[in-house]
Simulated scan of single mutants.
Amino acid sequence: MPSQAKPQAIDLDDALTQLTENRESIAWTHRRKLVSRVVSQMSSGQSVEPFRTLLLVLSDDPKPEVRKEVANSLATLPGQNISELAEKFLNDPHAYVASAAKQSMRRRKKLAVESQKNKRGLDLVIALHQQIEEQHGKEAADSARQMAEHLYDTLISASVHEMNHVMTSLKANTNRIIERQNTGKLTEKYLQGKIKHIAGNLDFLERMLNDMRNYARPVSDQRQGVSIADLVTEAISIVMSNLRGNGMDLGQVVINKSIPAELKIKVSRLHIVAALVNVLKNACEFLSSDSQSPMGTVEIDVSQLDDQAMIVVRDTGMGIPAEMIAEIRQCLPGRTTRRGNGTGFGLCNAQRSVMAHDGILQIDSIEDQGTTVTLILPLA
């Protein structure tokens, strides 16, 4: 068989000619690798059109594996006018090419939304800095900027520390499995134990990333009148399901409620349910006894104070250290719970959501005695 050029040896300027004259002069596996090179060049800021033409040729490749590679690139392909290319792949006769195109277009839309959010966030920061400078002078604006940078650095530092801790554990468990495998000492029981630890680490990372994303997202400004009893019931259901899913035995956890049925608050339901979930989950995880069989009482009392509702959540758990409460009050993520179940973002995210509703979240805690969290929100 004649030797076929490797993609590294193919000049992209010559690739179009080669593919047009004799497509089979380049092996299909190399044609597939050409796709990533073309997309990389298009993303580097160079003139898009020559590479776009080459990509269109590759999109007509008889091999579905090559077409699928092009379909995968739709998510990050530069330029706005890709509808024709997307339509072609969405109607591809091979289902897995069409599926790849569908997933890529979903991801492209998601990336576009995130990009717009980031731009709006940056525009908001610039506008706030200008507003502070106009109202209070340049020195005050610079001080506010420095404070924001300090909070940002603190957030990143705390998050990286927690993630490094988990990554160290993942690496150690993986290395131990490999060592035992190489020495012939790897037993099924040992392997299952390590896999359980690794799965727990990955679950923590997933929750950490989700909590970080929620921390960064702005709270919706859409409000509706909602029954507090309904919000609390929904939050309790989510917490119980979540904790049982993590293998916790909640048979000795008692939750008492005292909620006037007629009280409603005007809130974003999603965000306040999430805030209540974080508060209640934290209360259950901080109860006495071991992490898998918590034991104690969580009380939820709701009352009216003028034109506001007070939602008080008390637990008989181990309490929160004073320094962690100070961090939460500054909307800074705390450290992970002593049982290692929490990400440190829970009460902080609850604080942000409540404040965005012109409300107040108060935390009072005595170590080894319990914690009281009070949410004060405007009535509907």
Rank of each mutant, 00 (worst) to 15 (best):
M1C: 11
A5W: 08
Q8R: 10
Q8H: 11
A15Y: 01
Q18K: 14
A27H: 15
T29A: 13
H30P: 00
R32M: 08
V35C: 03
R37G: 02
S43C: 01
T53F: 11
L54T: 04
L54A: 04
L55G: 01
L56K: 09
K68G: 01
V70M: 04
A71F: 04
T76H: 10
P78R: 05
A86N: 06
K88N: 09
L90T: 02
S99K: 15
S104P: 04
S104F: 02
M105L: 15
R107W: 01
A112F: 06
A112C: 04
V113L: 12
Q116P: 00
G121S: 12
D123E: 10
A127W: 08
A127L: 09
L128S: 12
Q131P: 03
A140L: 07
A148K: 08
H150Y: 09
L155H: 10
V160M: 11
M163L: 14
N164S: 10
L170V: 05
K171N: 07
A172R: 12
N173I: 00
R176V: 08
I178S: 06
R180D: 11
R180V: 03
R180A: 07
T187L: 07
E188C: 04
I195S: 10
L202K: 05
F204S: 08
F204K: 14
E206Y: 11
N210Q: 14
Q222D: 10
Q222F: 07
Q224M: 12
S227L: 12
A229Q: 15
D230W: 05
L231N: 00
S237E: 14
S237M: 09
N246L: 14
G247F: 06
D249E: 13
G251W: 03
Q252V: 04
Q252Y: 08
I255D: 02
E262M: 09
L263R: 02
L270M: 09
I272L: 15
L280I: 15
L287V: 08
D290T: 11
Q292I: 09
P294L: 00
I300Q: 04
V302R: 00
S303T: 09
Q304A: 04
A309N: 03
V313L: 03
R314Y: 06
M324A: 12
I328M: 02
I328E: 00
R329H: 12
Q330E: 15
P333C: 06
T337S: 15
L347N: 02
R352N: 02
H357N: 06
I363G: 07
I366N: 08
I366V: 12
Q369E: 12
T371G: 04
T372L: 00
L375D: 00
L377I: 10
